[in-house]
Nucleic acid binder design. Structure first.
Lengths: 117, 117
DNA sequence: TCCCATAGTTCGGAACTTCGGAACTAAACG
DNA sequence: CGTTTAGTTCCGAAGTTCCGAACTATGGGA
């Protein structure tokens, strides 16, 4: 297929990161890759809570995360290995990812107090 | 005219903030309101560098920022006074705005510093 | 080797969002 | 009351996102 494009860390733009993470489903995908440390296949992420994300949507979410500079994707046999690029992003934009992920975590906490989700 | 809607701080969602600030023009508008401390009229912001933002677009950018919980808008005579809600947002999502604005500032530095995109 | 299964990508159309000009509303002032 | 200034609403064009169907790439058997 075509070689996957990954931006150099110095070309990563804050608006791309914010846009990528402004979709809650992408934020969850990224959170999982980030906390899994290094590797997670796309298919492992298709079931998200009670809803299923179609493959084509998942693929484009991964593309957005990749092109924003948030993850690194590499083919390994038949599946894709996804690593977060947290360390690089952290050195370019200190505190950004931590603050964003903490904000999501606290808003999930808050909504868990009342309703399901 | 209409009673302007402002979300309560506990209803503010991180995805709305990220979405609002993922547009560089809105980020610049917000940065100016934030650094001006309290008040800035819409019209003061229509000239942005070399490009002019039409009134209707500006109006909807303000609406997005307001509904994301980032600014407070109030009519004063014929013009609008816009205050940032930084302190409230900071107490709900500590470090978030600072990290985002610092990221933008550093990416502007980097692009001003020689190459440009 | 060929065929199949699995994992992801691309295509394309429907649904949604954003942009911006023209028309509108609201307040201030003569 | 008419005019000016500041901002909003309306609406069509342009752009983006979503997701099913068709496609491509890789690995494993017969």
């Amino acid at each position: 297929m075509r070689p996957l494009f990954h931006p150099a860390i110095e070309d990563v733009q804050p608006q791309a990161i914010l846009h990528a993470l402004s979709d809650p489903r992408r934020a969850v995908i990224f959170a999982r890759i980030r906390s899994a440390g290094c590797v997670e296949a796309c298919s492992a992420l298709s079931a998200m809570g009670d809803q299923i994300i179609p493959k084509s949507s998942l693929s484009s979410h991964f593309k957005v995360l990749r092109e924003a500079g948030l993850i690194h994707c590499e083919r390994h046999g038949v599946e894709m290995r996804n690593r977060s690029r947290c360390a690089e992003v952290e050195s370019r934009f200190p505190g950004l990812l931590a603050a964003i992920m903490a904000a999501y975590a606290s808003s999930i906490d808050a909504s868990a107090c009342g309703t399901g989700e």
